[in-house]
Design a protein around this nucleic acid. Structure first.
Lengths: 146, 146
DNA sequence: TATTGTTATACTCTATAACTATA
DNA sequence: TATAGTTATAGAGTATAACAATA
């Protein structure tokens, strides 16, 4: 019987989940609607679409990016016609950034492509495996909100 | 009874899994050992560590990056003392890139930090939920290899 | 001549610091 | 004077094209 075990990872779960998540995310990010859009632009557009209009400051905080860098990203997106900038009537220093219809189209197309790729892979799994993934997605959402 | 249903997503599973994965990956990537290292440098170092020595061409293919860009990344990593480049004795055009001990240290520290953050979140879950995540990680690995 | 890696050059993305407008 | 946003400038990261060394 083993008395003293060599130091083994106490929670291989974290390592497995980290690996699986980072690799799948990496693969998913390859699927995009508009190859002209950078990852940052894609991400900002998706965030604006699901959270509604936001200030540039809020966007730079969410993206962990400096205000000038976000400003540049917004310039590109506006030039492409994917977002609008409207000054606040109350405090004219503040700006509200919102997605245009064209922007929403790109966001949805990107989601569609990613889901299509993913569905292709999910089809090869058993119903049980798919159930597990569905439960896992819900648990991860809970974990992120904690 | 409903006869004609409005177009509903046939597989919400893909959408849920996509969202959960991208968000968790985003959060995990924030945890790094060396803030001086870019995401690309961090990724190359981790890949070299787990796959063993690789050619620059193999690395640029894996990272979906051009050979000159990878060359620049390797220059930075070599300057930092995290990798070695050794020409092949057989074919002297070819170079083998490998992680140094210092590089391995950084890789492991980054993994440790990400796992530590994740374990903190996993502790708040039930044993059942953790089991589901463990199974999901294995399924995702299978899915990526398919 | 083909291939592996690297250098040359230009462009995009990001950051810090300075500036403008509004409060 | 403080704050939200933007512009100025400079430093990384990336790409295409050209080059060097080896096969």
């Amino acid at each position: 019987m083993s008395t003293i075990l060599p130091a083994a990872p106490p929670h291989p779960l974290a390592a497995e989940l980290r690996q699986a998540t980072l690799r799948l995310a990496r693969r998913l990010r390859l699927e995009k609607a508009d190859d002209e859009l950078s990852d940052g632009q894609t991400s900002v557009l998706a965030y604006l679409d699901r959270s509604g209009a936001q200030s540039p400051a809020a966007l730079s905080a969410f993206e962990h990016v400096s205000p000038p860098s976000m400003n540049r990203t917004l310039n590109s997106l506006q030039e492409a016609g994917y977002i609008d900038r409207t000054p606040s009537p109350d405090d004219r220093r503040m700006v509200s950034v919102s997605v245009t219809d064209a922007g929403r189209l790109v966001v949805n197309e990107t989601r569609r492509r990613r889901d299509a790729w993913l569905e292709g892979r999910l089809d090869g799994l058993s119903a049980d495996d798919r159930d597990v993934l569905g439960e896992a997605a819900a648990i991860i959402r809970k974990l992120l909100e904690a």
